[in-house]
Amino acid sequence: MTFIKALAGNFPLIAASVTILLAQLVKVPIVFITQRIWNPQLGFSTGGMPSSHSAAVTSLATAIGIQEGLSSVAFAIAVVIAAITMFDAQGIRRHAGIHASLINRLMTTGDRVETDGYTHKALKELLGHKPIEVVVGALFGIVSSLLIYGLFYY
């Protein structure tokens, strides 16, 4: 029971965990409102608005900043990890998704590419984020931690 009590009292861990879940869940109504498509699977997928990775790492950094102070080593580490994560989400992962889309199109056209026996299964295309999705995710994470702290830990 002490282990569970310790976890429940770990504000940064709770804030980041709740934030990533909320960011994933909010993707479903956002797509419904903007595209009129109801797809609950979006709550379990990568990519889309907002970036749950960005939300989680900024939530974690914010919570650590609140708890440990903005001059703490833990806050500095969290900010650097958040910056790297957000850069990768809108850079490398987004480009991997674009490449997957092009490969999928190439493999479904009449022009076949030599595959050396490889049987193509469609690659996942929604991997990364547009910069706006990363920014909104980051803001979502900061606000989420502030609200969780104010409601449950203050």
Score class of each variant (00 low, 15 high):
Lys124Phe: 10
Ala6Glu: 13
Ser59Glu: 12
Ala96Arg: 01
Ala96Gln: 06
Glu125Ser: 02
Val134Ala: 09
Leu151Asp: 01
Gly65Thr: 14
Asp116Ala: 14
Met1Ile: 04
Ala83Asp: 03
Val143Ile: 15
Ser101Thr: 15
Ala56Gln: 12
Leu70Cys: 08
Ala8His: 03
Thr85Asn: 13
Ala78Ile: 04
Asp88Phe: 00
Arg93Trp: 09
Val113Asp: 10
Ala100Gly: 07
Ser144Gly: 03
His95Thr: 14
Ile142Trp: 09
Gly128Val: 03
Leu106Tyr: 07
Ile33Cys: 05
Val143Cys: 07
Val18Ala: 05
Thr109Lys: 01
His53Lys: 09
Arg36Lys: 13
Tyr118Gln: 05
Asn10Phe: 12
Glu133Trp: 05
Leu21Glu: 08
Ala122Ile: 09
Ile77Trp: 12
Ser145Cys: 07
Leu22Tyr: 08
Gly110Tyr: 10
Tyr149His: 15
Ser59Ile: 11
Ser144Tyr: 11
Ser101Ile: 07
Gly9Thr: 08
Val134Ile: 13
Lys27Pro: 10
Leu70Gly: 12
Leu123Gln: 02
Gln35Lys: 15
Ser59Asn: 12
Val143Phe: 12
Ser71Gln: 02
Val28Ser: 08
Val80Lys: 04
Val134Arg: 04
Thr109Ala: 01
Ser101Tyr: 13
Met107Tyr: 12
Leu25Glu: 12
Lys121Phe: 04
Ala78Trp: 00
Ala8Met: 09
Thr34His: 07
His120Pro: 00
Thr46Cys: 01
Ile30Met: 07
Leu126His: 12
Asp88Leu: 03
Leu146Gln: 13
Val80Met: 06
Phe75Thr: 11
Ala78Arg: 00
Pro40Cys: 04
Leu25Cys: 15
Ile14Glu: 12
Ile64Gln: 07
Ile37Lys: 15
Gly97Val: 08
Tyr153Gly: 08
Phe152Thr: 00
Ile30Trp: 02
Leu7His: 08
Gln41Ala: 15
Asn39Ser: 13
Ile148Trp: 12
Ser52Ala: 08
Val73Asp: 11
Glu114Leu: 03
Ile148Phe: 10
Ala61His: 13
Pro29Asp: 11
Arg36Gly: 02
Gly9Phe: 06
Trp38Tyr: 14
Leu139Thr: 10
Ala15Pro: 11
Pro29Glu: 06
Ser17His: 02
Ile142Glu: 10
